[in-house]
Design a protein around this nucleic acid. Sequence first.
DNA 1: CAGCATCCGAGAAGATACTG
DNA 2: CAGTATCTTCTCGGATGCTG
Lengths: 130, 130
Amino acid sequence: MPARKQYTPVTAAIDVEAAFQLLEGRWKLLILFHLFGGQVRRFSDLQRLIPGITQKMLTQQLRRLEADGIVKRTDHHEVPPRVDYRLTDWGQALCPALDAILEWAERRDELGSAKPAHRARSGGNGRETS
Amino acid sequence: MPARKQYTPVTAAIDVEAAFQLLEGRWKLLILFHLFGGQVRRFSDLQRLIPGITQKMLTQQLRRLEADGIVKRTDHHEVPPRVDYRLTDWGQALCPALDAILEWAERRDELGSAKPAHRARSGGNGRETS
DNA sequence: CAGCATCCGAGAAGATACTG
DNA sequence: CAGTATCTTCTCGGATGCTG
């Protein structure tokens, strides 16, 4: 790898920790995916697009993403409330990086480590479609 | 192959979720960073290199990384126990992907979102150093 | 519609003690 | 040295009810 930067053990690790903190949690990536490509989504859109998320989580994560400068929130101050969300420029720049992770994940088989080990995140949150 | 895959909203999101699950948690990335470059580390090395981690966490995370095929564990069955860890080929392949995240994180200033917002991970268990 | 407030359970993480 | 076992704590995420 043509690393343009040395992996100074601890120092770099701190950076990575901080970077990944921005994306941590169960829902952040899902939300971001629905905003990629410059799409503008309303709160209810996202809620519909991400089955299983609660308002609390959606609000909470959006607030964090906003505070971190990844997402831009626009409140139209209308009387049936209308708020929409879009990625900031920086947020858009995340796209290729996530793609790199995806590509890596897919190379699992290709590189011989054929491990299923698909332990579910929460054992059984199989709640849905009443 | 550039952009060999479309960002199919939900489908891709599931992939990413699964991929990120492999790296989630407070310590996995730190551990991986100390193994990057094909380095071979003993348990005690890692413990020394990662200040603050407990044996429990180190063991637990190493086991997960091993189960996921990212890390290879070698027990030398000697009498003062000697075990070492290294990345699998697949694990090594993660390096550039993480680098992409790092690069992205660093572009924060460059792209105008000059947000400090450096809220610490642990809100108030600042229980350390005496 | 787009939240906020509150209560609750599960899992992650930490501290500590013990072992081959 | 490299763990395992147990107990406790903390944070995340879920469920529900209430507003402007």
